[in-house]
Write a protein that binds this DNA or RNA. Structure first.
Lengths: 249, 249
DNA sequence: AATGTTCCTGCACAAAAACGCAAAAAGCCG
DNA sequence: CGGCTTTTTGCGTTTTTGTGCAGGAACATT
């Protein structure tokens, strides 16, 4: 069998089944595994497929690209994400809500981290999918098209079954008297459940959102254990929060 | 034998078998390998064939034709999606598996359609999200990084709780004796549950996948109510399926 | 940490291609 | 016909290409 012929066969198989094992291939065609590996290497160099340990993947199925769009205040959110990541350790169970801040968090998780992330937010899950080591648990239920997160009683009951080590909450509004507030009733229900199911609650907010409030309350201010903003912890704006015992990063 | 005559013969052979070995040729015609090689070189320069180490290939054989977007056999898959859409009506509950064929289906749902789609496949859900009117229910559980679909007992039990009107199944392999088969154990478990929970099971497969099989069985052939391929229903390849009572579109 | 896979590197060997050269064949023309 | 050029072909030698094998590194899984 000619080399090109063989490579065409391999490509065909990959495109047909989205993945292919080198062991299977060297069995199908009658050549050594080295040859298969070299073929996969070449095809991979040509960008026809993605070579992985033990075989290859189709290129088309693999890269799901989604418009994250221009993220508002992205540099601030990256600062926040970096601080948040310092609180994550191997083996943790971590609940995360939705929101662009959480997406940034998901995007910058260190590659060697091994932990379990639980979420119902599709954009966040997309970022988790790119990570090589973390385990991802998806909360199922009805998909809310606005917030791109699963909402409903089923989702809430699933969250209640979890006892997470920490919970990262993207915060839309927070102030001393109203606590954490938001404007989507269904999302608020979810966040409430997440807070109840976590030993440690971490709020993440850019300072534009600090000291503002919205119609629906997520929780009292004292439910938040740690607050992360893009400012240094000694900024006067954050002092009231520190004074009532919230840890500020 | 004249040169022109010889080259015509070579071309004929290439077009007939899609490939040709220079060793075979110099045996058939009685000339040295150098001559054959020179002929192949000339024909290759004229673009009549593709010269490779050890012989030559027909041009059609070599180039795997991708359509726009990089999805393999996309036009076929669009044909299939169009046929599948004709089976969907307002108000239906619809279970869908994963796979590129289903993604095409999701992408081309008519905008005015109002129905409920249930799925655990992230790429498919992304397409559903863009639709203005449909309701989307997400099956939760552990996310399998390979197949980008939620798998596990929780997902299966959720599917069991559903009684869907129809189920669209992306099929990896189907043949008369092995039924529907696949190569990922966890995905197979899901598909089994989907079949049990649906009143009408529709298999979607490009014909390259018809009459092939893989290690793990999803279901017997008779569990499939309707089979959709890119071919017209009267194609002889599909006759055996019609004969055992499967509706073919 | 321990184990079995899979991967990469360098090597050897065989098959095929490229190159140069010369002989043979064909064409051209007086 | 004979002499000339041009084309085509075959043969040896050198290079390149394709393939398999062994040993150690990297990887995944327990």
């Amino acid at each position: 069998m000619l080399k090109k012929e063989r490579q065409a066969y391999i490509l065909h198989q990959v495109n047909l089944h989205n993945k292919v094992l080198s062991a299977t291939l060297c069995n199908d065609i009658d050549v050594s595994e080295d040859t298969i590996r070299r073929d996969l290497q070449e095809l991979s160099d040509e960008g026809k497929l993605i070579k992985v340990h033990g075989g290859a993947l189709s290129h088309s199925f693999n890269d799901v690209h989604f418009d994250s769009g221009g993220v508002y205040s992205q540099t601030h959110k990256k600062t926040i994400a970096a601080k948040a990541i310092s609180m994550i350790h191997n083996g943790m169970f971590i609940l995360t809500s939705g929101g662009t801040t959480i997406i940034e968090l998901a995007r910058f998780l260190p590659p060697q981290l091994k932990a379990t992330f639980i979420s119902g937010s599709i954009p966040v899950i997309l970022e988790y999918m790119k990570h090589p080591n973390i385990e991802v648990i998806i909360i199922g239920d009805r998909l809310s098209k606005n917030s791109k997160i699963t909402v409903g009683p089923e989702a809430i009951s699933k969250i209640r079954q979890v006892k997470a080590d920490i919970c990262f909450l993207g915060i839309n509004s927070i102030d001393m008297s109203h606590g954490v507030t938001d404007n989507d009733w269904e999302v608020v229900q979810l966040k409430k459940a997440m807070i109840e199911s976590s030993q440690h609650v971490i709020g993440m907010a850019i300072t534009e959102k600090v000291n503002t409030f919205q119609p629906i309350q997520v929780c009292e201010i004292n439910k938040i254990d740690t607050l992360i903003t893009e400012l240094p912890p000694d900024d006067p704006m954050l002092k009231p929060y520190i004074d009532i015992g919230i840890k500020v990063l």
